[in-house]
Amino acid sequence: MKSLHVEGNGLFHRLPIRAKLLLLAALGIGLFLTRDPRLLALGPALGALVWFTLGLPLREALGRLRPVFLTIVIVAAFSFLVNSKEEALLQLLRLTTLMLFAATVTATTTVSAFIEEITALARPFEKLGLVKADDIGLAFGLVVRFVPEVLSRYEAIREAHKARGIKLRPLTLIAPLIILTLREADQIAAAIDARGLRRH
């Protein structure tokens, strides 16, 4: 699985992650404080300037935003038709701005910086007994490690269906996929404990 981080050395790359997240949160609140479309129109313009100068190839830069931008446009069009035209325009401008800057934060921050930040943010909750902060990194690792495994198991089940000449149906796929995957939990847990990975 490839992360959405992009190498670079611009302003956003050098800002610490906490500053970027706080700026993004402030932007999210700030955008909803004004209803002036001329002021809000600055947002997408600035956002696009930042996003398209990050060094991503244009196709990739557009491709990454497409699914989110599509939902924004569809809901704005729906709002335009059934609700008020003004509201639809405001929403289109606000969400497009937010999308561009959020995508920028994601592209300029490494996955490990995010994991460190999330672990740090989870520390206070350790005292409440809710989570062990260091487990979060371990869990991320396990997911990334096992997604390909689940996919190869899906392939195996699909092949088995083909060999028997039956069509792949959700029920004949999902139950075996889940049982086969979860059944390994005991072995993996034993391996983790044997290596003392949670001895913190």
Partner: peptide
């Protein structure tokens, strides 16, 4: 959801990253 936040494309259609949270849905 945390994997989405840290910028891995784990949602259907390869979506991921903080931009997902700017969508109206």
């Amino acid at each position: 959801i945390l994997l989405v936040i840290i910028g891995l494309p784990v949602l259907s259609g390869g979506r991921g990253g903080l931009a997902v949270f700017a969508g109206p849905t």
